[in-house]
Structure formats: C-alpha cells, structure tokens
Write a protein that binds this DNA or RNA. Structure first.
Lengths: 240, 240
DNA sequence: ACCTGAACACCGTTCAAGT
DNA sequence: ACCTGAACACCGTTCAAGT
C-alpha cells in the first residue's frame, strides 16, 4: 500500500499535469508569477523536465488556452434566437476567463489555438449558420468576435493584476478614474469633460454586454442592407 | 567646439529620449527584444539610470503608448459622415501601430494612458457627438472601439513576431492556416470544414474593416431601435 | 523516451555611493 | 536631483549525463 499508492508523489510528468498546475497557479498567483520554474517546483522537479512535454513557454500558453476553450459550453442552435445565443456564448467565455484569471493573456496571440479548442468554435458557427448569417459574414464575425472577447478579458485581467500589485482593491482602483475625467481642462477637453459622468457609468459587465451587442447588431444590419444590394465589408470603408 | 558640441555624446537623459529609443528599438527588434538594458545601452548608460525618469517597465510601456496615441490624426467633425470618419480613425490608429511595430502590446492594459494621449480621444468623441450619437452610447463605444483596434493590432503584432521567430515570412506563416481547416474531420467539424474556403478569405485589412464596420453599424442600429422605445445596452442581453 | 543538475545568457529592480 | 556600478533575485532554455 505504502509501496504502491504514493511511493513518491511523483506520478510521472505529462502535458496534462503540467497544464493543470499552470492553470491552478495562474488562478492563484496571476499571470506574471507563473513561470516554468514555479510549475516545475510544484511538480517536484526542475524546469528542464517540462521541455520533454512542451516546446517552450509560448506553447504552454497555447495549451492553457486550448484547455480553457474546450471547457466552454455552447448551446445547440436555436434559429429563432441565434443572436441571444451568441451573446450567451460571449458571457460564457468571459465567465471562463474570469474563473481562471490569467488565462486570457494566454489566449491573445494564440488564436485559433489547437484542434481540441475548435469544438466550441464549430458550435458557434453552427449557431450563426442556423441563424441564416451568410457564410462570409459568419466567418469574419467569428474571428473578430473571439478577438474582442479575449481582448476584453485580457484588459480586465491586466487591470486587476495592476491594481493588486499596487496594493489596491478593485474598487479603490476604480475610484481613481472619475476624478481624472472631472479634473481635465474644460478648454482643452470640452467634450470629454461634458461626458465625464457618463464615461464612468456602467461596470465591466455592462460595457462587455454593450460591445457584444454592437457586434451582433452590426451583423444583423449587414444582412438587412445586403437584402437591398450586394455589399462587401469595405462598403462605407474602402471609399478612402 | 569639440569641447561643447559633443564632449561626450550623452546630452542628458530625459523621459523623451528614453521613449524615443524605446520606440525605435521596438520597431527594429520587436517587443520582446526591447528591455530596460537594451534601451540604456543605446543611451550609453546602465539600466539603473532609467529609473530616475520612469518608475518601471510598465510605466515605460504606458509612455510609449501615450506617444503613439498623441501622433494620431483625427479629422474635424463632419456630421454628415461621422460614421466614415470613425472608420478613418480606426485605420489611422492601425496605421500608427503598424508603423511602430511592438507598440500595440504597450497599449493593451494601459488604457486610457496619460492625459496627453487624450487629445485624439477628445476628437473621437467630438465626431460621435456631431453625429448625434447619444452620450452614453458614445462613451461606451469609445471604450470598446479603442479596445478592439488595439487588440487587433496586438494580435497582428504577436502573429508577425511569432512568424519571424520561427524563421518564416508572413506569407509562409499564412499558408499554414488553410490546410488546418481543410484537413479537419468532416464528421466532427461539419460546419467548419464547409466554411474552410471562406474562413481564410480576406487579408488583415479586410478583417479589420469588417470588425470596425460591425461596431459602427451596431451603434447606428441602436440609435434606430432607441427611436421606437428607450433601450438599455442589456436589451437582448441581460435577459439571462 | 523521459528526466535531471548544472549552467548559460539573460531579465527588472534596488541601493549605496558618487556628482 | 540625477546618475552610476554592482549586486540581488530572478527568468527561459540548453545540454550532457543519467535511467
């Protein structure tokens, strides 16, 4: 029993265990504090051992990204409410990034990640297709939508890390913002100062919902205007 | 003359010179190769000297971001074509990030940056206001729009850096993508495989224009629907 | 094939000392 | 106030050696 069950608590290294530890450390210590060495240490070995399972730090990030992505729940397509379903997916992805702080920074620059991470992507495109979104629009939307969600999560994560490293709570850090806009020169920033109140209205969730809403409404608007005349994305854009 | 003009070619350190060197190194070597030490070396001193002008690496990034942002040209508001003007601003910002590779990574997580960097922001809000966009929508749009543009530039920059570090040209790196989608299992990824052709259609500029177009159209669509009934951002979103 | 210890070539930042 | 040399406490990665 003793000679088997836990002779040593090293049960062989594997990519899976490495990613497990990486994600748990990401959550507990934040992105900057997780290193090859800290991961190796928790696994009871030296950093060199990790390189038998992962090519480098970038690939580790990519694997972390794949793991998080593969955890996303995406509903079966319901054509009558594809737009709400896309908004739901956005919230689900943000929820996952938040539940595993630090992982958003592994995502940016690592898209589309690995093949296992494509399952949720497949489902997102299934929803768009069920909703009748034209293939080309759906394709580009998937790209920009994923980027936007990841960027929001990353920015939020950096913001929180920074606040923490300055010894502030999130609320305290937030409280530093409104005065900045209030105290701007009215002569130099007439619009910004007049917007000061509204600029700092709404928490992260509201801002996120707004951004996602913009993209979904934009997609619908394109379909509507395509009904009149065939239009390319550049439409109002590559005129210049 | 010799005793004055260039006794030594160290003409006093300053934040300005440090940022100058940082940006020029960012452009030439890419984000990862620019360090406090490399900047100091080019200025003929040691890394410790920089800390008299900049608190830490994060603040240097923030200063680089401020410098780049302040270079953005934003046109005077023309109410009749505010939407095209916003698209122009997006292209101008992307152009700046591209002209100074590596700086996009200084921007993410550093918004809204410093006060000097707010001049372009003021002008963007002036265009939105001239276009009749409601204050709250304009405010949230400015936030999500800036994030989206910075994220696009950052992703592109990381992508290019990665390609370069693997000894590939951008074209070669791009060529690796289509086969990935082509060779997916049709059974597991029926939608993705059917979209393979269209997924890899369009270069970076087209994708960028598409994303920006979505956000602008979304903003207009919100105004249109607000005409019928007062609506909050959550509308189709915080139902769940 | 997998794992390891030790080393290499770096980092950002601090600090006492100089001017 | 600004600058410096030297050091501290780290990094990611490599490599010869072990199993």
């Amino acid at each position: 029993m003793a000679a088997r069950g836990r002779v040593r608590d090293k049960e062989k290294l594997s990519l899976e265990r490495i990613v497990d530890v990486a994600i748990s450390q990401l959550r507990e210590r934040g992105y900057d504090a997780v290193t090859m060495r800290s991961i190796a240490a928790e696994l009871g070995t030296g950093p060199a051992s990790l390189y038998a399972h992962v090519a480098n730090r970038n690939e580790l990030d990519s694997q972390v990204n794949a793991r998080i992505s593969s955890m996303a729940y995406v509903p079966e397509p319901d054509p009558s409410r594809w737009d709400e379903q896309i908004a739901e997916v956005a919230r689900e992805l943000l929820r996952l990034y938040r539940e595993h702080p630090g992982t958003a920074r592994c995502t940016m620059g690592n898209m589309p990640a690995s093949i296992e991470a494509l399952d949720p992507v497949e489902k997102i495109f299934a929803i768009l297709r069920a909703g009748g979104v034209p293939d080309q629009d759906a394709s580009w939307f998937g790209d920009q939508f994923s980027l936007h969600v990841a960027a929001f999560a990353m920015e939020e994560d950096i913001w929180k890390s920074r606040a923490r490293s300055e010894g502030l709570t999130e609320e305290e850090a937030w409280d530093h913002i409104p005065p900045v806009f209030m105290n701007l020169s009215v002569a130099r920033f007439p619009v910004l100062t007049s917007l000061a109140g509204v600029l700092t209205t709404g928490d992260a969730d509201v801002r996120f919902a707004f951004g996602v809403d913009l993209m979904i409404r934009g997609l619908k608007a394109r379909a509507a205007s395509a009904a009149e005349r065939a239009s390319l994305p550049g439409d109002s854009v590559d005129a210049c």
